[in-house]
């Protein structure tokens, strides 16, 4: 994908998709499948797509947009947790996409979900001034593995058609 215009368009679409997924996953009620403090992390699919196809800067920009959304809709705490978890997770997934061809989508999803949770827990520990919040770690480890495997698999399924679509339309546009 070389055309700059198409990159900008894809970035804008991914940013919007990230926000919509972020909002939608907030509608999932707390349950056995979604323990307190855990999130499905569907918007991570958009971030992973950005990190793997557009690079680190657009991916971090989407993370920033997500954190801003969390700040506006759910307050300073949620914003700070989203930002810190998001940056840690985005940098990790970018490095995996860039330097480790042998790491599959599923594990990239799991590792970035876990890094997101680690970043969030670290912020939570700083904010409450108490390491007791690490009591949430076991639940977040389990939910991170499950949701990360899910988002990684979804990414594997949706990525080729999206890239193909953009590459095709980009080359068609070039011909005309």
């Amino acid at each position: 994908m070389k055309n700059r215009t198409y990159k900008i368009a894809l970035f804008a679409i991914l940013g919007a998709v990230a926000l919509v997924l972020n909002f939608l996953e907030g509608l999932i009620p707390v349950s056995a499948f979604m323990p307190p403090g855990a999130k499905a992390g569907f918007s991570n699919i958009a971030t992973m797509l950005a990190a793997s196809t557009l690079g680190i800067v657009p991916a971090l920009a989407i993370t920033l947009i997500k954190a801003g959304f969390a700040l506006i809709t759910r307050g300073v705490t949620a914003g700070a947790m989203s930002l810190c978890g998001g940056v840690l997770s985005t940098v990790t997934m970018y490095l995996l996409f860039k330097f480790s061809r042998k790491t599959g989508y599923l594990v990239i999803g799991v590792v970035s979900a876990l890094m997101h949770n680690i970043g969030q827990l670290a912020v939570a520990a700083v904010l409450v001034g108490n390491t007791a919040v690490l009591g949430y770690a076991p639940v977040l480890l389990v939910s991170g593995i499950v949701t990360g495997a899910l988002t990684g698999s979804i990414l594997r399924a949706v990525m080729p058609p999206i890239i193909k679509l953009f590459n095709n339309s980009a080359s068609e546009g070039g011909k005309e």
């Binding site: 042998k102 790491t103 599959g104 989508y105 599923l106 594990v107 799991v110 076991p138 593995i145």
Partner: peptide, 25 residues
């Protein structure tokens, strides 16, 4: 060399993570 969904090495990584998760749980 297309990136796969799961590689052999990934299975080892996942096995360790899942083991820890189940043990903690």
């Amino acid at each position: 060399n297309e990136r796969k969904l799961v590689t052999k090495r990934d299975i080892a990584v996942l096995a360790v993570l899942v083991f820890f998760a189940i043990a903690l749980l």
